[in-house]
Design a protein around this nucleic acid. Structure first.
Length: 553
RNA sequence: GGCCCCAUGGUCAAUCGGUUAAGACGCGACCCUCUCAAGGUCGAAUGACUGGUUCGAUUCCAGUUGGGGUCACCA
């Protein structure tokens, strides 16, 4: 009668190393007490998901705040879904958010002593551990075809028992070693399954770093750990990699909670200490009254690239996500007058337990705050960088007349209550159109929104008067007194109080007189501070615009 | 369906058995004001339901309901 030892040898003849060897190759990390080793371990299957940014931000923050290590591992074991180059793209996008790994997989090669950090390059490690598992009888080859498995599942459904490969339904679980060897030698394809000792009627408990104690049914299914393509499944790769990479805290999506007993089962079988788990709630979206996970297919905001394309400052998204992660962040930010999330004392225990609905209003709010607090030179740089990728015309202007753009972006900015016009850089262009002659000409070619109640002749006179006599190069008060005086000559009120008391005595209010100038110069009834606008445009240009509009009336 | 997670305003949420149940976004009103963006003041709006424990439950327990997740040779 053959032994498991022989079976293991037949399955993995080339594997010479033992688990002992691996333990030596990847020694325990020498880190201070309390330092956490965390990671972000995505599959290279597309763009960075907003939920992934959220979990990676948390992993990163935990490592940084505890003086630990944050690494990046590429989980490319699903060869069918892998998209070439998306691993590098993920790293680039994370980099835009300042989430750079201390070690791990990088475009230009691995960094760190616990690699390789790309799972497809870790085949021998998995095979070494699995060989050992076969040897001790905790893993075995399974010869079921997909059709066999399908048949088993169908009969389970018909009999209304739990589907899965477990107990009496685990067809090849109790094959004799001789039989297994015979089938392998006969060339029948196989996968390797983990042999669970679990009992469905018992519970496994573990302490989640966010939720506290969680109690689940024991795992009793014999999950596949090595697929027919020679690569491991997530379950096994996670256990194996996070053991040898010495991860101390696994932060991952809450959808992993139900499979945690499988992982714990394997850690136990290998006699390895399991890491701590932090299951992060998913970011949700309201869809026809129902909450659901942000979906990459249905929701533009599920892809981080959406925010980048719209021109949200990366910091703003991070601030928003942090406010979801630890709701006391807002309070902290207000007290410290800073949105610097790296200084915020993040506590994983303070994470809320259910998934937050993505709130674009709140993001916009934070984003306006962030942009308003950005120093002008930095803002110009950011806008320019955004424009370079997404707004050709704006980019050209920023390159050709940087000082002019700087003045425009600086309107009412350098004060205690700065303007908060922009939530995203894509808001800039539509807001500043009128500053450019050719745009302004297009705008005033359309009927202008002058008040119907004011006689066109008066409007015209006001424009002509302003074109001739309005002062330039003065401070705001002097300028405004002048505007008042000019309006007064035509019968406009020179104070709102006067107008309120006797509106019938005037052709229009003080606001109305100023509005005529605003409309002519900006094409709109709304604009930032008129005085600043006029000074930026310059005397010559303003007088020309006023005359042009007056003539067209 | 089995199992698991979750449950305070529209949204994010504080409260570690005793509170007029914070705060923020959004919304409304008013103020400021040459318009707007802001800013200021004020306001409307919350403990899913039913039992139990307790002198006292938003808070602890159970059940109900509701929402979410998961049951692959995908992660």
């Amino acid at each position: 009668m053959a032994t498991n030892e022989e079976l293991a040898e037949l399955l993995f003849p080339d594997v010479k190393d033992s688990i002992e060897d691996l333990e030596k190759r990847y020694p325990a990390r020498n880190l201070p007490e309390g330092a956490q080793v965390t990671r972000f371990a995505p599959s290279p299957t597309g763009f960075l998901h907003t939920g992934s940014l959220f979990t990676s931000m948390i992993s990163y923050t935990v490592a940084k705040t505890t003086g630990g290590v944050y690494f990046f591992r590429l989980e490319d074991t699903d060869t069918k879904r892998t998209i070439e180059g998306s691993g590098d793209l993920l790293i680039e996008q994370l980099h835009e958010f300042g989430i750079d790994a201390d070690e791990g997989y990088f475009k230009e090669g691995d960094k760190g002593a616990y690699g390789p950090y790309k799972q497809s390059e870790r085949r021998q490690i998995y095979r070494t551990v699995i060989k050992e598992l076969v040897r001790i009888g905790r893993a075995y080859p399974d010869f079921c075809t997909p059709e066999d498995l399908d048949k088993i599942r169908k009969s389970q459904e018909a009999n209304k028992v739990l589907p899965g490969y477990y107990g009496i339904y685990a067809r090849d679980r109790n094959l004799s070693v001789d039989e297994r060897i015979a089938r392998i030698n006969a060339g029948i394809p196989w996968v390797i399954r983990f042999k669970s000792n679990g009992d469905h009627d018992r519970k496994t408990k573990f302490t989640d770093a966010i939720r506290g104690e969680i109690e689940l049914q024991d795992n009793d299914t014999d999950v596949v750990i090595l697929k027919s393509d020679g690569l491991p499944t997530y379950h096994f790769a996670h256990v194996c990699d996070d053991h040898f990479m010495r991860t101390t805290l696994i932060s991952r999506g809450e959808e992993w909670i139900p499979s945690t007993p499988i992982h714990l089962d394997m850690f136990r079988a290998l006699n390895w200490k399991a890491p701590k788990y932090a299951h992060i709630p998913s970011i949700m979206k309201l869809d026809h009254g129902n909450k659901r996970k942000l979906s990459k297919r249905k929701d533009p905001e599920a892809a981080v690239s959406y925010f980048l394309d719209e021109g949200y400052p990366t910091k703003a998204l991070l601030v928003y996500l942090m406010s979801i992660a630890n709701s006391n962040f807002e309070e902290w930010a207000a007290a410290n007058k800073s949105f610097d999330i790296s200084k915020f004392p993040f506590k994983i225990k303070k994470m809320s337990l259910d998934g937050a609905l993505f709130d674009i209003d709140k993001l916009n709010y934070f984003s306006k705050e962030v942009i308003a607090a950005t120093p002008i030179d930095e803002l110009c740089k950011e806008v320019k960088e955004y424009a370079e990728k997404h707004d050709e015309i704006l980019y050209k202007r920023m390159v050709e007349m940087p000082e002019y753009l700087k003045k425009i972006l600086n309107i009412e900015k350098d004060r205690k209550n700065p303007r908060k016009d922009y939530a995203k850089y894509s808001d800039v262009s539509p807001n500043i159109r009128f500053f450019f002659k050719e745009e302004w000409e297009k705008m005033v070619a359309n009927p202008l929104p002058f008040k119907e109640s004011i006689d066109k002749a008066i409007v015209k006179q006001m424009l002509e008067l302003a074109a001739k006599e309005m002062v330039f190069g003065t401070d705001e008060n002097t300028w405004f007194s002048c505007v008042k005086e000019l309006g007064g000559r035509l019968g406009f009120a020179t104070s709102n109080k006067d107008y309120k008391e006797n509106p019938e005595k005037f052709v229009g209010s003080l606001s109305d007189s100023a509005e005529i100038i605003r409309i002519a110069v900006t094409g709109s009834t709304q604009s930032p501070n008129l005085h600043e606008i006029l000074e930026i445009l310059g005397e010559e240009e303003v007088r020309a615009r006023l005359n042009a509009v007056a003539q067209a009336l």
